[in-house]
Design a protein around this nucleic acid. Structure first.
Lengths: 405, 405
DNA sequence: CAAGTTAGTTCGCGACTTAAAATTAGACTA
DNA sequence: TAGTCTAATTTTAAGTCGCGAACTAACTTG
């Protein structure tokens, strides 16, 4: 049982956070409207926003007339208050992107590399962060978020387990710090979760509070959002949808088990099933393979059948999420998910309906993701922003007179 | 976005709730210790507990010496402050039980009936409540909780969907009220969730914050507890584990789909699979059938094989929960779950390990439930208690001067 | 330019938590 | 049996916070 007191000061923090978050997500708003939407009194809104403006977190943004009265002054989060950095550690290289607080991309770099060696990855992240942050004052960087393929164990310091990369218990957070990123909040998170977060903030998940973002690519994963925030479970490795058993005793999966969803609807699984049907494939990477397969479906009976089966497996997998999580919306993303979804949306939805219980199914809508896999970096960059909105940037300067003592 | 203000009054409610909950769960404690555990100052603890004592919610319970100083006065929740009622609507009848605030059973009645007719069930609930509450003052009943087999849609008034009972959109809450239970908080909830809640408060889930209670009986369900409270999803029908697909294209399930977990490990499914293997069964109900099957496993190769397969399916199903929810503990319950678990615990755990990812698996422990299926009623009775702890019983009498106006 | 409107501020109040000082309530001592 | 000690509570005084009411600011209208 963690100590759970509530002091009068938490009130202010909470209300600061509420107002700041509302300004961030609902665009420019007047104080009046803030009061109406949050339920806070005009007095409090005035008081708190005054503080936020004084702290530089919020700025005025013009005003709009209101028939016959004093015009409202619009407020919005100050995009120049600071910057955040998002890092996408992929299977072929890393991307580092710098955003201002308006989430406008300011700079970006990309380095190809094999991520087999964690040390090299950490050094490359540190180098990328330095490159990208070169143009802005150091103190302006509010935090760095890193999205990695694999499960992340959140603790005093984040530990990464990524079977596909051969990482087993890599203390990535410490390594990145050691490589030169210190004095700045560092958040390491599973890439599927950061991508899901991006869909929630800027994509198909906006406005909903209970969402499952299902991601299908080479790997298969999901980000589960409940009550508006990403579900993490006890050690934050929740949402490992890809290695959920969907065909007991079925195809072998690279995770060592059998019958996993990923073995059927992951890019690998799809192509392997196609080849087993007798259709040989030339070389090329997975992505072009899947694209070719989808194109072939127009003429090839075998290709069409494989894809229809895939839609069936995928629908059943989605149905499991519907039954277990009862979300109000399912967002299907990931490069393979989007490719399949565009061509076989009806089939996937139909399979979902068949395999889920009527009641939760009726409560859910299914949509395609709007962001594509590039979203991992933006999503990672939202992590420090979320922390900022949550803490609402510590009220007042940190201990200004402590120096004297 | 729901209005989200925080007023200074919420503080007091929050702290009342924290202190009352701590007294409820952690037995008698002194004010001093309350302060230490909650982080609240001694002054606040004294102030708030004074109010709680005055309101009759808390009473002193002796004192213990403290080497050489003023002895601490122990405080505990007043068991006599009020009573709560739990109702278990089962497939063969209903049970109604009355508890005091110490959760000691004070009275209980049981009525056999077929629950096919919702109206009759509602009337029987009302009658049972009246019977059981006959011995205590009306105003002493703090609330009634009802556990039903089927999904419950929480809204202005609870609606029940229970395919096995033939209920489709039954407004049970309204019906029970119409049948005579009014003026008292009424909570209707899925029986699996109430049973899970009981395991959390009094059984194998105590002390953990992320738990999945897996229940296997005639039906198969789960109660997912995250951050200490039952996960409900968007419309509170989350946790429908039983109709999750585990063998794509497999056995037909009574839900209309195929390959559901319930079709393999539900009592029905187990017995049906045994019969298909050629072993004929006499009559008898499911429970004695499963018991007989387990006894037969000692001598019959076929019976043993069916049960081992069952353990495999069940382990895979549990592994899916491990992968998706990343709980710190799994509690296996339900009458069939307990029967299987006692005899085949090793096999179930082994299958779980095989089908789950190593990392989340290592974070989880698997335990048998401690309460048995009788727990549905106690669990239902915890619902009004939870509401009480949460609101901390409205500070001060409800609008004492509103009468005058 | 006066009247009418709507937005935002200021002021004083009541409710809260807290730190510090004061007050118990036994145990121990001489 | 009065005096001394120690540790648990209760009081007291101070500082925060959000709220409602009264007040001020900034336009539009006729």
């Amino acid at each position: 049982m963690p100590p759970k007191r509530t002091t009068v000061r938490d009130l202010r923090r909470q209300n600061r956070s509420t107002l700041l978050s509302m300004l961030f997500f609902e665009g420019p708003l007047s104080r009046h409207e803030l009061g109406a939407r949050t339920g806070l009194s005009a007095a409090t809104v005035s008081n708190v926003t005054g503080e936020l403006v004084e702290d530089g977190l919020v700025v005025e943004a013009g005003s709009v007339g209101s028939d016959g009265g004093r015009p409202r002054v619009l407020l919005r989060v100050n995009p120049g208050f600071g910057h955040v950095i998002g890092v996408d550690v992929g299977e072929t290289g890393i991307k580092v992107e710098l955003f201002d607080l308006g989430m406008t991309q300011v700079a970006a770099v990309e380095h190809a590399m094999s991520p087999a060696d964690p040390g090299a990855v950490a050094r490359l992240i540190a180098a990328g962060v330095a490159e990208v942050a070169a143009g802005v004052p150091v103190s302006s960087v509010l935090g760095v978020g890193v999205g990695v393929p694999g499960t992340v164990e959140q603790g005093a310091s984040a530990i990464v387990h990524a079977r596909t990369l051969g990482w087993d218990g890599v203390p990535l957070e410490e390594m990145v710090r050691a490589a030169g990123v210190f004095g700045v909040p560092l958040h390491v998170e599973n890439g599927a979760k950061t991508q899901g977060q991006a869909e929630m903030w800027f994509g198909a998940g906006r406005g909903a509070r209970h969402v499952v973002v299902a991601l299908v690519g080479s790997g298969v994963g999901a980000a589960v959002v409940t009550e508006g925030s990403v579900y993490r479970g006890a050690t934050s490795s929740a949402g490992e949808w890809g290695h959920t058993t969907i065909v007991y005793g079925g195809r072998a999966c690279r995770c060592g088990s059998s019958g996993c969803l990923e073995a059927y609807v992951g890019a690998d699984g799809i192509l392997a099933r196609y080849q087993e049907v007798g259709a040989a494939f030339g070389g090329g990477d997975e992505q072009s393979g899947v694209d070719a397969l989808i194109r072939a479906a127009g003429s090839s009976e075998a290709a069409a059948r494989v894809l229809e089966e895939t839609a069936g497996y995928l629908g059943a997998g989605i149905a499991n999420l519907v039954n277990l999580f009862n979300p109000e919306r399912i967002v299907l993303g990931g490069w393979a998910g989007l490719a399949l979804g565009e061509r076989y949306f009806e089939e996937i939805v139909a399979a979902t309906r068949v395999h889920s219980l009527r009641h939760p199914y009726e409560q859910t809508s299914i949509a395609l993701g709007q962001l594509g896999p590039d979203a991992v970096a933006v999503g990672a960059a939202t992590l420090p922003v979320a922390a900022l909105l949550d803490r609402a940037a510590d009220p007042r300067k940190p201990s200004s007179h402590a120096d004297i003592a």
